[in-house]
Design a binder for these strands. Structure first.
Lengths: 398, 398
DNA sequence: TAAGGGGTTACCCCCGCC
DNA sequence: GGCGGGGGTAACCCCTTA
C-alpha cells in the first residue's frame, strides 16, 4: 500500500541530494531502450545540474521467493520489476546513470534492509557462471544510459553459514582482534541480519579504474515470500461475508501463513473519498489461529447497531510488526428488520465462497440461491437478542 | 478402533502356537509387581503347558513422537503404555515371560511394521548411555517374570542415513556381492521401510548363553505423531453442525495435519446397536484442503430428504491409505418444516464452536442463544429450493 | 527442569502451462 | 520438455506449561 520512494540508505549520515530524484511512481512504467523524455525534468534543477547520479527507473517486486542453493537445479523464474504485476509485459529492475558520458560499469548486489552493508544472500545471474556476489552491466547501451537487470535470482544463504561467511569477510581486515573474539562478533552480527529482506544496491564505476562515479542507490526492500514475518498477507476463504450490526458472530477464514502473535483482523468502512471513517477489530485469541493458516474470529459491532439499511465494509488482515495489510474482502452489515424502513428485505444479503471455486470473492449474484440463504437470520421472527448474550469482543493487540 | 491382538510376526512361516496367548485386551490393565491370577488361565491349556513364552501385558501407545538426534538435548517424555491414556497413572510397555524358572534377559528393540527385521530408528533409554539399539532387563524381579520398559524413546534416524546404516549392517554378511551392488540393494531396501511406523520386539534370552528362550513377540504398531501419513486424525473446529437433509451446504473445518490426496469426510448414522446404517461423504476437491490444516466441503444429502424430524448423525475424517478415522463430531439434519409433523420447531437445532473455547464439542445447551440462531434457515418463509440449485456433490475418492 | 508442543529452516518435489 | 511457479516434507529449533 505504501508507495515509498526508493530510499537512499537511511543510515548514511550524509544524505545525497540526488536521492530526491530517485523517486519512481509504481504506476510509471519506463520501457527499456526507448527514449525517455522524463530526463528533461531532472535536468531542470539548477543545483545538481551536470553531477552524475544513479536513479532507479523500475523498482524490483516487493515479494520474491528466495531459493536455497539446493533448489537451483531447475529454473524458477527471475526477479521482476514492480510494474510487472500490473502490466502484462515483464520488466526488470532498471537503473539509469544520469549526467554522465562515456562508458561505465553498473553493478548490482544485495544489501541489507537496515544498513548499506552487503547481504549474506547471493545475487545470482542466469547463464552466468560467475561466483561473484554481484551482477554487472556496461552502459551506454544503444546510446542510452539505462540498464535493466534481467535474469537475476536471490540465493538464500543458510542461516548456519552466515557467521562463517562474515568471518571470512572480516578475517583479513580485522587483524587487531583475536580469531576467537572475531568469531563471537560475527555470530552476533549474523543475528542482527534479517534474512527475509534484502535490497538491491546499484553502483556506477569507471570502466577502467573501477572507481565509483557517484553514490550508490538502494532499491525498495524485497521480502522473502516464504516467511510468515515478511510474506504477503492474504484472506483465501471466508465462511460468511455478512452479519448483524451488533457483531459477535463467528467467522472462519482461511489465510496464507501468519504468525498468531502478530496478526489482526480489521474491519473498516470507506467514505466516498476512500477515507476510513470507521475501523474495528475482529476479536480472537492466539489459540483461535489454527496452525498459521486459519482463524476463527468474532465480528465486531458496527458503530451504529441500529442501522436502517445495509452497510458495506471491508475486512483485511494486518500485521502490526511492519504494518502490512492484505487485500480487503467485502463484508456487509445487514440492517435488522426492526430498524429497517422498507418492509422488503433483500435475499442476497449474505454470501459464501463455494468449495468448487478458487479463493477470489464472487459476485453475489453468481451464487446459487440455496447458499445465499444459509446465513440469514430468522428475521421474520424478529427476535432481538438479550444484550447479555452478545459476547464481549476481546480485541487482541500485540 | 480396531482392537487387534498383539501380532506375532505375520511373515514368519512357522507360526508359534504361543502367539494365541499373547492377546491382551486394550482395556485390561495389569499393574506391575502385583500377582496376576490370569496366569492360571494360560496354564489350563494342555498342549502348550510348560513351554516358555513371552506375552505382552501392556501394549505401547499407538502414537508417539519420534525425535531426531538433534532434539535429544532436553527431555521430552518417554514411551508409555496404551492404557496410560485412559487412566491417570502412567504405565509402560510390559511383557511377561511365562513358564520359565531361573534368570533371563528380556531385550527390547525396534522392528519394522511389515517385517520382523530391525528398524533403522534407534530405541533410546533414559540415563543409559549405551549405543546399542536395544534395551535390556533381567527377570525375575521381586520373584515376578513381568517387566515394564520405562524411560524409552524412539530416535528418528534421518532418511538419508538409512541406506548407509543398512550397508554397514550387511557389509560383512554379504561378501558374495560387490559393494556397488549391495549399495544399490540397500537403497532399494531403504525405500521400502516405513519410517513413520515401528513395533517393539521383545525377546527372552538365557542369561549366560544369550540363546533365545522362546520366539520373540511384537507389539502393536507405534505411529509417528508428526507425519500426515500416520498421525492422529482430528477435527478441531467445525463451522456448523447442522444442515438441511438435501445437503449441498458449505462447512468449514479445521483439522490436524492431513494429506489432501488421502483424506475423506464421512457422514454416518448409527442405529441403536451402534451399527452404521447410513454413510455418505462430504464433497470437496484437493484444492479445498487449505495447507493441510483446513477443509471446505459440502454436506451430503441425507438418505431421506423429506425427514419429518431431526436426525442425529456423525462426521469423521477417514484416511483411505490405512483406514484410520478421527473421533466423530455430531451433526444434525434438520427436518424441513414442510415435512415436519409438529409446528413447534426447536431453537437449538444448530451450533457452532466458540472462538474462546478449545476444540472439543460443547453441549448444545452451553451455547449462547445468539450463536445457536445463526445458521437457521428462514423456515418461516418455508421456501423450497428448486432442485437445480442444489449442487451435485462431487464425492472425491482417492 | 520435565514433558509436551508448535513453528522455522532447508530441502524436495509437483503441478499447469506454454 | 522445461519454464515458472508452488506446496509439502524432512529435519531442526525453540516455546509453552507444570
Amino acid at each position: 500500500m505504501s508507495t515509498t520512494a526508493s530510499d537512499q540508505d537511511s543510515d548514511s549520515s550524509s544524505r545525497s541530494p540526488q536521492s530526491y530524484y530517485s523517486y519512481c511512481s509504481p504506476s510509471q512504467q519506463v520501457p527499456q531502450l526507448t527514449p525517455d523524455l522524463n530526463n528533461l525534468i531532472y535536468l531542470d534543477n539548477g543545483s545538481k545540474r551536470n553531477r552524475p547520479f544513479l536513479r532507479i527507473i523500475e523498482q524490483p517486486q516487493d515479494y520474491f521467493r528466495f531459493r536455497y542453493a539446493s533448489e537451483m537445479a531447475g529454473t524458477h523464474g527471475c526477479l521482476l520489476g514492480k510494474s510487472s504485476s500490473t502490466n502484462k509485459n515483464k520488466v526488470h529492475p532498471t537503473v539509469e546513470l544520469v549526467n554522465y558520458t562515456g562508458q561505465a560499469v553498473i553493478k548490482c548486489q544485495l544489501a541489507q534492509h537496515k544498513t548499506p552493508e552487503e547481504h549474506p544472500h547471493k545475487l545470482f545471474e542466469e547463464e552466468q557462471d560467475n561466483d561473484d556476489r554481484e551482477v554487472s552491466c556496461i552502459v551506454p547501451k544503444q546510446g542510452i544510459y539505462k540498464v535493466g537487470f534481467g535474469g537475476m535470482g536471490i540465493i538464500h544463504t543458510a542461516k548456519k553459514n552466515v557467521p562463517g561467511l562474515l568471518f571470512q569477510k572480516y578475517a583479513e581486515k580485522c587483524k587487531n582482534i583475536s580469531n576467537k573474539e572475531l568469531k563471537i562478533q560475527c555470530e552476533n552480527m549474523a543475528k542482527s541480519i534479517d534474512l527475509n529482506i534484502v535490497r538491491l544496491k546499484f553502483s556506477a564505476h569507471d570502466i577502467s579504474t573501477d572507481r565509483e562515479i557517484c553514490k550508490p542507490v538502494f532499491s525498495e526492500p524485497i521480502h522473502s515470500l516464504k516467511s510468515a514475518a515478511s510474506n504477503d498477507l492474504k484472506i483465501c476463504r471466508i465462511s460468511r461475508c455478512s452479519g448483524r450490526p451488533v457483531g459477535g458472530e463467528d467467522v472462519y477464514i482461511f489465510v496464507e501463513k501468519v504468525n498468531k502473535k502478530n496478526i489482526q483482523i480489521r474491519f473498516f468502512e470507506l467514505d466516498e473519498n476512500g477515507h476510513r471513517v470507521w475501523t474495528a477489530n475482529g476479536s480472537f485469541m492466539p489459540g483461535d489461529v489454527h496452525h498459521q493458516y486459519a482463524i476463527i474470529f468474532r465480528t465486531p459491532a458496527y458503530k451504529d447497531t441500529k442501522i436502517s439499511k445495509n452497510v458495506n465494509v471491508y475486512i483485511e488482515l494486518a500485521r502490526p510488526s511492519d504494518g502490512r495489510t492484505s487485500e480487503p474482502k467485502e463484508f456487509k452489515y445487514i440492517a435488522e428488520p426492526i430498524y429497517s424502513n422498507s418492509k422488503k428485505r433483500r435475499m442476497n444479503a449474505s454470501c459464501s465462497t463455494s468449495p468448487a471455486s478458487s479463493g477470489s470473492l464472487k459476485s453475489i449474484s453468481d451464487l446459487p440461491a440455496l447458499v445465499t440463504l444459509n446465513n440469514n437470520f430468522n428475521d421474520e421472527n424478529n427476535i432481538e437478542m438479550p444484550k447479555t448474550e452478545v459476547l464481549d469482543p476481546l480485541t487482541y493487540v500485540l
